[in-house]
């Protein structure tokens, strides 16, 4: 399985394959570097936070985001995918439901909107435990949910990437989009924090 992201033998094979492709003129190394640099430079949890802040202040945007996240994020100048086409699905927390995202098979993650994933997201402990006992895992992150809230876990096991829309905190009616976005954390966008 693909648990061994630090696998030296696999990394060596990838480097060898890349070298062969460059030698035969199939790809240009500088071009590949430019694509990766551009991709990683633009991916950040600040993007996801701005999407959430807009969803909090604009009910129409929120509806469009939940119906078709790929189209909605382009309104803010973002792209859902990066190097390959991605179906983005936004899942909203409510008073009754709390959503949390995992990729049990590897580490699939909406990099364009959240940046590179945190190391714990790729750990076997998180991936195996959050689908089985999410309440305990969330409690370890400091998020204790009342029994009245149902937990929904989303396993990004194929080509869909998930973004959690946290609930807007109380007492934030006076804040603008920038200040609201500053409240949203990376863990909130994954579902391992309330916001």
């Amino acid at each position: 399985m693909s648990a061994d992201h630090g696998d030296g033998a696999l990394a060596a094979r990838v480097r060898r394959a890349e070298t062969l492709l460059e030698e035969r003129g199939v790809v240009d190394g500088a071009e590949l570097d430019a694509i990766l640099d551009r991709y990683l430079a633009t991916g950040s949890p600040a993007n996801g936070a701005r999407v959430v802040a807009r969803a909090w202040t604009d009910a129409g945007f929120r509806d469009r985001l939940l119906a078709d996240a790929n189209a909605a994020v382009t309104e803010l100048g973002f792209r859902a995918g990066g190097l390959q086409p991605t179906l983005l699905r936004a899942v909203a927390n409510t008073a009754e439901v709390h959503n949390v995202v995992v990729c049990t098979l590897c580490s699939c993650y909406p990099i364009a909107l959240l940046g590179p994933s945190p190391s714990w997201y790729k750990s076997e402990a998180y991936r195996s435990r959050v689908v089985r006992d999410p309440r305990s895992v969330l409690a370890e992150f400091g998020l204790t949910l009342p029994d009245t809230v149902r937990v929904e876990v989303w396993d990004a096991s194929a080509e869909t990437r998930y973004l959690v829309v946290p609930r807007r905190p109380d007492g934030t009616d006076h804040l603008d989009d920038d200040k609201l976005a500053a409240l949203v954390t990376r863990n909130g966008l994954i579902g391992t924090a309330a916001v």
Binding site: P134, E152, V153
Partner: peptide, 23 residues
């Protein structure tokens, strides 16, 4: 490809949560 939701009880024999998997 589908999003398929499973009750925790079906997967683990316990739990009140749901797990949605892309298949």
């Amino acid at each position: 490809v589908y999003a398929v939701r499973f009750d925790a009880v079906e997967l683990w024999g316990a739990g009140g949560h749901g797990v949605t998997v892309n298949l």
